[in-house]
Amino acid sequence: MVLLSSHASATFVFGFGFRFEINLMFVLLGFVQLFFSYFKDLVGREVTVELKNDLAIRGTLHSVDQYLNIKLENTRVVDQDKYPHMLSVRNCFIRGSVVRYVQLPPEGVDVELLHDATRREARGG
């Protein structure tokens, strides 16, 4: 069993060859909530944000918003040889859509809590 996904458009493709376009704004409102809540609880901890352009920035999570835009404090660039211009910026705002990964502190991950929240959300959907 394999799932393929694409963000190209809000379209479901069916085996019969027809499409049905659905605006699911309300889905969005509910579903980004899990990670928004999770990151809010991580405020104050050290994380490493890796951007899609390969830049990796380590810093203290200052805040996060519903779009998963991330604000870091006391940041430093992980690969300083490659990105000398970014050396220790004080405050940093990162647009959510340019994030590839966030490396999380192990003490900030409660696996059971995450499983429960995910199941609850999945069951609702």
Binding site: L3, H7, A8, S9, T11, F12, V13, I22, M25, V27
Partner: peptide, 9 residues
């Protein structure tokens, strides 16, 4: 706008 995936079956 692009919140929903195209699921491929």
């Amino acid at each position: 706008e692009e919140s929903v995936h195209n699921w491929i079956f």
